[in-house]
């Protein structure tokens, strides 16, 4: 099956990239000023001489550099990303605890940016010089120039303080009790502002992109053909044109995912969202290097996985790529 082959190829490529990040981490530990053992212990947190000695033993820091590299890779391969001495927990489990919250935030933001952005772009494409179209262009420029953390703070002041319709932060009301449904609603309520903050930049960007694509698509021959077939305008717009206009948006969204993840660090910090981003902030604050490097590695893994998923969804939308031709009967010329 071509799809399986493709996924395997992408996986192999992803594993290589993640491996490169592991090597980068190793290099950083050794390039950073000071004793690598101290780096691996982190600055704050009780690093006694015993702990340092233990770290030296675990990572073979007395051996030549290449042995150290192999030792380090071996540890990472077994899922040992080190110990956070500040939190007194293994780095991996700390990150995995926080990952779901981040994924919820990032995916909500991206999916709504893609859907809402494409919708707006489609509507704006009907009047290329209309107010909506110009509004989108201006919003894109504003979104591009606004620091995301500041936007989050402004939204907090506006919608959690001056007109308090949203909570001031965190993911759940403390001590909140209720059924699953109410709990989900509670989380959703907390999710609105951070997700919007994170989506804002991309929303306008995707609208602009889909509008441009839509204009191109609407001028295409197959849209004229669809009109000549007597199909109604809504069917032409939402069946024939939208799907074609969506392809570049999905591509760009996939390429930008690592940026979105970085944006989440800032947004989570502002909204006290208990995810990986907030953990990043804490690890920076505490100079918890193993945790920080672990987050770098896991972020790369997340981006790789998301890229593979994007690739697959791309193939679902566009039959011309990869899998589509497998079912082909071979109608050559």
């Amino acid at each position: 099956m071509a799809v399986v082959k493709l996924v395997l190829a992408r996986l192999a490529q992803g594993v290589l990239l993640v491996f490169a990040v592991v090597v980068l981490n190793f290099l950083l530990i050794h390039l950073a000023p000071g004793d690598p053992a101290q780096v691996l212990a982190g600055e704050f947190g009780g690093t006694t001489p015993q702990i340092l000695a233990q770290i030296r033993a675990t990572y073979g820091l007395n051996h030549p550099l290449w042995v150290q590299l192999l030792t380090y890779i071996g540890h990472v391969a077994r899922g040992n990303l080190g110990q956070s001495f500040y939190f007194n927990q293994p780095v991996l489990s700390l990150i995995l605890q926080r990952l779901p919250a981040t994924l919820l935030l990032v995916i909500t933001a991206q999916v709504s940016a893609i859907l809402a952005g494409t919708m707006l772009g489609v509507i704006a494409a009907r009047r290329p010089h209309g107010w909506l179209s110009q509004g989108i262009t201006v919003t894109a420029l504003i979104g591009y120039s606004t620091p995301v953390f500041w936007l989050g703070i402004m939204l907090l002041i506006a919608f959690a303080y001056l007109w308090p319709i949203f909570p001031i932060g965190s993911m759940e009301t403390i001590g909140f009790e209720g059924g699953i449904f109410h709990e989900a609603l509670n989380i959703l309520h907390h999710l609105v502002l951070p997700a919007f903050t994170l989506a804002f930049v991309y929303l306008a960007q995707y609208s602009r992109l889909s509008q441009a694509n839509m204009l191109e698509t609407l001028g295409s021959d197959y849209i004229r053909m669809a009109r000549a077939k007597g199909l109604p305008e809504w069917l032409i717009l939402y069946k024939h044109a939208l799907r074609n206009a969506l392809i570049p948006v999905v591509t760009i969204a996939g390429l930008q995912f690592s940026q979105v993840l970085a944006g989440a660090i800032l947004v989570e910090t502002v909204f006290d969202w208990p995810g990986m981003g907030q953990l990043t902030y804490e690890s920076i604050l505490r100079r918890d290097y193993p945790l920080l490097l672990g987050i770098l590695l896991i972020s790369a893994v997340v981006v790789v996985v998301v890229n593979i998923l994007t690739d697959l969804s791309y193939r679902l939308i566009d039959p011309r790529i990869g899998a589509g031709s497998v079912t082909g009967v071979g109608y050559g010329t």
């Binding site: 990040v21 970085a262 944006g263 660090i265 990043t280 920076i284 790369a300 981006v303 790789v304």
Partner: peptide, 12 residues
Amino acid sequence: QVLPPLLLSMVL
């Protein structure tokens, strides 16, 4: 592309 640039610069 797989390393969030802002995160990398934070780490550095």
